[in-house]
Simulated scan of single mutants.
Amino acid sequence: MTTLIFNKPFNVLSQFTSEGGHRSLAEFIKVPAVYAAGRLDRDSEGLLVLTDDGVLQNKISSPKYKAPKTYWAQVEGIPDDAAIKALRAGVKLKDGMTRPAECDMMKEPAGLWQRDPPVRYRKSIPDSWICLTIREGRNRQVRRMTAAVGYPTLRLIRYRVGDWTIDGVENGTWKEVQV
């Protein structure tokens, strides 16, 4: 069994085939027969687990198992207590209520790589960082949650999936891990 953790760069698809001229996993990973366990949007960065084990892939990606996924979100504005409380309680989205999330304000992560292209900054609106852990995986869920409480996401980095993190894995690189 082979399991890899990959620190996916911005603007890279979470698949091995390129579509629409976008970069894909094939540019970075030459290990045969591994597939992404779950998805990470092209405009999101960070941890992507790849494996050749179908059971593990299902445990990571299926909402049935409620695998925790932790994200660092750079948001427009500085969320107030009501916004943090709403994220912790669950947010009403068009497709229903989200499960409660763990959510806290945080400082910009130390040693964070530069994004290419950089995030758009507005002089009149500050930005800040939150750490959000969810146990479901709806399409663009974290972005929709932060927007629903009034603080749109500018940059989204998945830091953790289950027990794995991107600690020690440079952006655009991967390493094999034991399960």
Rank of each mutant, 00 (worst) to 15 (best):
M1L: 07
L4S: 10
L4R: 10
L4F: 09
F6C: 03
F10A: 04
N11Q: 13
V12R: 12
V12S: 08
S14N: 07
S18A: 13
G20S: 01
G20C: 00
S24Q: 04
A26L: 02
A26Q: 07
E27F: 00
F28H: 05
F28Y: 15
V31T: 15
A33C: 04
A33W: 08
G38L: 12
R39W: 05
L40K: 13
R42S: 02
S44E: 09
G46D: 06
L48S: 10
L48D: 08
T51E: 06
D53S: 08
G54T: 09
L56M: 13
L56Y: 05
Q57H: 11
S62A: 15
K64Y: 06
Y65R: 04
T70E: 15
Y71H: 11
E76H: 13
G77K: 07
I78K: 14
D81H: 12
A82T: 13
A86S: 14
A89K: 14
V91G: 10
K94P: 01
T98Q: 09
R99C: 07
A101E: 11
C103K: 06
D104S: 13
M105A: 15
M106F: 12
K107C: 07
P109I: 05
R115W: 07
R115C: 01
D116W: 02
D116T: 09
D116I: 03
P117K: 06
V119K: 01
V119Q: 01
R120F: 01
R120H: 07
Y121K: 14
Y121N: 03
P126A: 14
P126T: 07
P126E: 07
D127E: 10
D127M: 08
S128L: 10
I130H: 12
C131E: 15
L132M: 14
L132P: 03
L132G: 07
I134V: 15
R135F: 01
G137H: 11
N139M: 11
R140K: 15
R143G: 03
M145H: 09
M145W: 12
A148F: 09
A148D: 09
A148T: 05
V149H: 12
G150R: 07
P152W: 11
P152L: 08
T153N: 05
L154C: 06
I157E: 03
I157N: 02
R158G: 11
Y159P: 00
Y159L: 15
V161A: 13
V161D: 05
G162K: 02
D163N: 13
W164F: 15
G168P: 01
G168V: 00
G168R: 04
V169E: 02
G172W: 12
K175N: 06
V177N: 13
V177R: 09
V177G: 13
V179E: 14
V179H: 13
